[in-house]
Design a protein around this nucleic acid. Sequence first.
DNA 1: ATGGTGGCTATGCCA
Length: 262
Amino acid sequence: MPFTLATWNINSVRLRAGLVEKLLTEEAPDVLCLQECKSPVAKIPHEIFAALGYPHMVARGEKGYNGVAILSKLPIEDVGDKDFADLGHARHVAARMDNGLTIHNFYVPAGGDVPDRDKNVKFGQKLDYVAGMRDWFASEKPQKAILVGDLNIAPLEDDVWDHKKMLKVISHTPVEVEALTEAQDAGGWVDVTRKDLPVGKLYSWWSYRAKDWDAADKGRRLDHVWATPDIANAAHGSRILRDARGWEKPSDHAPVFASFDL
DNA sequence: ATGGTGGCTATGCCA
């Protein structure tokens, strides 16, 4: 059966419940994974999404920061979460569908401003978090799984607006890219977005601070869809809904879509 | 070199 999934850093699911509604109504993915919900799970406006045909939700939350949620048309089972680097943050949750597909939803730490772990604790925590992902994937050997989320790293030259200018900017430093590549390789994960769209610039995030984000187009691809090799060949139709970055009171991230014939 | 915007929650922290 064909299956479509989207991932979106929503930057407050309560403030932007209307934008989630718009996405679910207009695009109707089977599963929507959200990050930066910034809400306790009990205060996520789940009734609104249930009324639109998404009665199933698996989520982790905290007050004001972080938070991840998986909304689904079809039943999903909560199969736990990980707290890499012992941050105590709601940055991961996993769900399993009746067909055995596992969906991992991640919100990797942003890492602060200074790309030096001796001067910036947050950067060290980001590297430790991604190393934790690597070690877990190496021991788990995931199968029939999809990993999505805001990984806060843009690994490829064409994932940023200016590769050379970004080499010392957190999200595109070589040490981060290496760490992410190690995590990807440890699980055998295939970058589905780049499998489908191998050529050219691709962004999913544009800063709120740019005067004219659309014209300046200084974006980064921070949001990812990965799949294990056993289902990666079933993936197709990846796209980034850039329009959503221009919606009223937008998130600074755009949703990333992928479809799978499973 | 700096500051630019936005969310949460009440003041500074985080992105």
